[in-house]
Structures are given as structure tokens and as C-alpha cells.
């Protein structure tokens, strides 16, 4: 009897701890949402924890229109979409050649690509900065698309190679006998087969591009090409005394990733766990 009670108490304690941690994890985000809907009067008033009295949707309208947030949002979407398309295509091609074709140095080439997993982005900052300046890509979306694509490759190739290797050879053989060319086989048969891997890779690339700060803040200073992360860093000074509008900007920047996670949580979680197996 005593033991059973003990176990029961332990279980309750366990739940209390889980709930406290959950609260600590989620409350800051909820608080962000509340102050993004408050007027300055409320934000700098007596109780920062209070819920907004009337929803200041105007914070969002102001920041989207006057604050250029719409431009930043568009740029982030543009850079991220092109990077995903670009890196997926060329890494799937390379992975196909490495996993399925016959050539002597393919294992060495794979090792060469996987070296990239060990290299911190920071170490390439100056050379890429000089390269962007020299080639005129500096202050254009390409200054981000090119490096993001490069850094997306190692992980994508790693995942695709694993996936291609798990597909039985008979799939291609049948198509060859029917007289299809290798390009047709790649496009019509192989690419559809690796769709799950493409989803995994795309989510990973999406999150790393969307959230990237260091390259973005170094390679882009023109207002019209800023992505969300740089844009927000620029807004901080301007909106130092206007938390409501800055908060609205932060919510808009975070929302797309949160929405994707909420609707595709198992896909997103799979991206992260697949990415970790390389360790």
C-alpha cells in the first residue's frame, strides 16, 4: 500500500516537472504574441504579463507596410525557394552518380563531399565576402543563394546516397531494356522514388536558410534585398521604443517555420533525426 502510494506520488511529481518545463518552453513565445498585440502604453505599463486589452492589429499592418517587412518576407521566400530547388537537383544528380554508376573514385568523391559536414560556415566568411565583392554578387540575392546552396550539399548528398542505395537495381534494369536513356530514368523513375528523402532534405535546407543570420548580415546591406533575419536586426534600432511593432515583426518571421512544424511535425522531426545519424 505504502509503495503504491509512493509510486503514485512520484508519477504526479514527474508530471509537475514535465509541465513546468513545457511552460518555460512555451510561455516566452506566448508572451511575444501578447506584446505584439499591445500598444506602447500597455507594454510599458504596470503589468507586462497582462493580456492585451484590445488587439492592436495595427502593429502588424504598420510593420508589414511601413517597416518593409513585406519586402524582407518576400526575399526570404525567394532565397530559400531557389536554394532548395538548386541544391536538391544538383545533390540528387551527384548522389545518383555516386550510388548507382560505376566509376573508380566515387567513394573518394563521396568522402570529399562529406568533409563539408565538418566545416563551420564561419571559416569561409571572409573568402566568400571577397568573392561576392569581386564577382558583383555582393548585395544581390545571389550572395546568399550561392553559399546556402554550397552548404546544403553535403547533408543532401549524404541523405540521397543512402536512399538511392536502398532502391533495388531491377527498377532501372527494366527501364533500360525498354530503351529509356539514363536521363529519362533519373527524372522519371529515380526522382519520384526518392520523394521522402527530398522532403527530408528540403525541410532541413528550408530551416537553415530561413534562419541564417551571419552570411545574410554580411553580404546584404541594401534594403531591397534584405532577408527577414537581417531586416529584423536593422529594425531593432528604429523600433527601440516600439516593442509592439518589433514584436509583430518577430511573430511574422517565426510564423512560417512554426506553421510548417505544427502541420508536418513528424516530417520535420524526421529531418532532424536523419540529419543526426551522420555523427
Amino acid at each position: 500500500m505504502n509503495l503504491r502510494e509512493k509510486i503514485k506520488n512520484l508519477k504526479i511529481l514527474q508530471y509537475i516537472i514535465l509541465i513546468i518545463v513545457a511552460f518555460v518552453q512555451i510561455y516566452p513565445l506566448f508572451w511575444l504574441l501578447t506584446f505584439s498585440l499591445k500598444s506602447n502604453l500597455e507594454i510599458f505599463g504596470k503589468n507586462p504579463l497582462a493580456l492585451p486589452k484590445s488587439f492592436m492589429i495595427s502593429n502588424y499592418a504598420n510593420i508589414l507596410v511601413n517597416g518593409n517587412l513585406l519586402t524582407y518576407l518576400f526575399n526570404s521566400v525567394f532565397v530559400t525557394a531557389i536554394t532548395i530547388a538548386f541544391s536538391t537537383i544538383i545533390s540528387a544528380m551527384a548522389a545518383y552518380a555516386i550510388a548507382r554508376m560505376c566509376w573508380k573514385i566515387k567513394e573518394h568523391v563521396l568522402t570529399y563531399f562529406l568533409l563539408g559536414l565538418m566545416i563551420p560556415m564561419q571559416a569561409t566568411l571572409l573568402p566568400l565576402f571577397l568573392m561576392m565583392k569581386r564577382t558583383g554578387a555582393y548585395n544581390t540575392p545571389w550572395a546568399l543563394i550561392l553559399p546556402y546552396t554550397g552548404f546544403a550539399l553535403p547533408m543532401a548528398i549524404f541523405i540521397f546516397v543512402g536512399f538511392f542505395r536502398s532502391i533495388p537495381k531491377e527498377m532501372e534494369e527494366a527501364a533500360f531494356i525498354d530503351g529509356a536513356s539514363i536521363y529519362q530514368i533519373f527524372r522519371v523513375i529515380m526522382l519520384p522514388l526518392i520523394k521522402p528523402a527530398i522532403a527530408t532534405v528540403s525541410i532541413f535546407t528550408f530551416l537553415s536558410c530561413w534562419n541564417e543570420l551571419m552570411f545574410a548580415i554580411t553580404f546584404i546591406s541594401k534594403e531591397q534585398f534584405k532577408t527577414l533575419t537581417v531586416g529584423i536586426m536593422g529594425m531593432v534600432g528604429m523600433y527601440a521604443t516600439n516593442w509592439g511593432e518589433l514584436g509583430a515583426g518577430l511573430v511574422v518571421a517565426a510564423l512560417p517555420t512554426v506553421i510548417i512544424y505544427v502541420f508536418m511535425s513528424s516530417q520535420v522531426e524526421k529531418s532532424f533525426t536523419t540529419g543526426a545519424i551522420k555523427g
Partner: peptide
């Protein structure tokens, strides 16, 4: 077909060039 050198090159070269230009050469230059 699977060991055709030209095909292999077409498949591998874009990623190889990209990766080398964006990651490996900058590291060496650093």
C-alpha cells in the same frame, strides 16, 4: 551506360564545382 564517363561527369560536376567553390577553396584561401 552506367559507366559512361561523360554521363558521370554531367551528373557529378555541378555539385562538385559548387561545393569546391563555396566551401573547399575558401577554406584553403583562409
Amino acid at each position: 551506360v552506367l559507366s559512361n564517363k561523360k554521363t558521370i561527369l554531367i551528373f557529378v560536376l555541378p555539385a562538385f564545382v559548387f561545393f569546391s567553390l563555396i566551401i573547399i577553396l575558401p577554406i584553403l584561401y583562409s
